[in-house]
Every structure is written in structure tokens, then in C-alpha cells.
Simulated assay, not measured.
Amino acid sequence: MAIEPDTKDWTWVLRRPCAECGVEAAREDPASVPALVRDAVGRWQEVLRRPDVAVRPDTATWFPLEYAAHVRDVCGVFDRRLRLMLEQDGPVFPNWDQDAAAVAGDYEHEDPARVGEELAAAGAAVADAFAAVPPESWQRRGLRSNGAEFTVATLSQYFIHDVLHHLHDVRG
């Protein structure tokens, strides 16, 4: 079954609340992101224990296991992007195609327990990385391959929206 790729530019969540999930990313204090990530990882663990974790809600939607595997990978991508921004001046992030990653990673056939362990580790790593950002570094800049510009602060806000939005998707 082919799920239609998401081609939306979600950077608008940095300017207005998300009508789908209710998250107001721009209002999140970047210093709160580590705690929000840790809380979200705990909620993802509960989702991964549900009996419907591998049940597709409809033909066009990932099932909870796929979303959890995606969030695990998102944590790694944002951890690497954050580190680039802290180590380099104005880096351009390597392109990441989330839909290609889902196919290559065979998300739908992953083991929920393993995804839970990996998500816990990836979530802890990115939470620790954001927690360690020195105050003078929150305005450092980086660019996505499509030209979208982020500061470390807005990267943290954009990231936490993704994690929380997908919890909303799976009713977590």
C-alpha cells in the first residue's frame, strides 16, 4: 500500500498555531523543549504498547508504529542538525526525505519494542543536546536544503511541533 508523500512546507508552524494538533510552536520556550521531548517519549512508549499499534486507521494514513519509527528518526535528524548549527557557521542541512526513509526503513514491519527502545535513546540524545545549548547559541543559524532558515531556537520549536503533532495523529 502506498501512502501519499507529505509535500507540505510545515515551516508555517513557526508563525501560527497548528489547526490540526493545536500546538503553538512559536510560543514554546526553547529551553522547555528537552522536558517536552522527554514527556512525549513516555507517551510514545504507551502508544507502542497498544494492541492497534500496527493497524492502519485508513488507507491513506500510517499506523502508530510507522509514526513512532518516523519520530525516532526525526529525533536523530534534528540532533544532527542541531550539532551542525552549533559546530559550523550557517550550515546547509543534508536533505532528508521522510517518505523515502519510511520505505527504506520498512517502518511498517518494525518491532514495536525495538522502536520503543530506539525512540527512547534518540529522544534522550536530542533532549540532552537541546538542554546543553549555551544561551549565546540560540540565535545561530542554519538552512534547510530548500532555503528555509532556522535559528537554533526556531529549530527546537519546529522539532517539538513534529513530535507532538504525530502524537496527536495517533491519539497519544
Rank of each mutant, 00 (worst) to 15 (best):
F159T: 05
V103F: 03
E46S: 14
L84V: 05
L82K: 03
P135I: 10
A113G: 06
E117R: 13
Y67Q: 09
V74P: 10
A124M: 00
T59L: 11
H165A: 09
R144A: 15
Q98I: 04
R56Q: 13
T59P: 08
V37S: 07
E108W: 10
T154N: 08
G142L: 02
K8R: 15
A153R: 07
R80F: 07
R141S: 11
R81T: 10
A100P: 07
A26R: 14
A124P: 01
D162R: 05
I3S: 06
M1I: 12
E4G: 02
L14S: 06
L167C: 01
A35R: 11
L48W: 02
M1K: 11
D9C: 04
R114T: 14
A60D: 15
L167Y: 04
P135H: 10
P112R: 11
F150E: 00
R50A: 15
E24C: 09
L65H: 02
W96V: 08
E20V: 09
Y158T: 01
A101F: 14
V133P: 14
R56V: 04
P51H: 01
D106R: 15
H109V: 08
V126M: 03
G42D: 04
D29S: 08
R114H: 09
S145E: 10
G90H: 13
L164N: 01
V33G: 06
A120M: 01
P134V: 12
A121G: 11
P17F: 02
F93A: 02
L143T: 12
W10F: 09
R43N: 04
E136A: 15
R49Y: 00
S156R: 04
P5N: 08
S156G: 15
Q88A: 11
K8L: 14
R50G: 13
L119W: 06
V77H: 03
R15F: 13
R16C: 06
F159R: 05
A132Q: 05
E149Y: 07
E28V: 15
A101T: 13
A101H: 13
R114F: 04
E87G: 15
W62E: 09
D73C: 01
R38D: 11
V92E: 12
S145F: 11
F159H: 06
R140L: 12
V47A: 08
V37D: 00
L143Q: 11
L167D: 01
E117L: 12
L119R: 06
V33N: 02
W138L: 04
D79Q: 10
R83D: 12
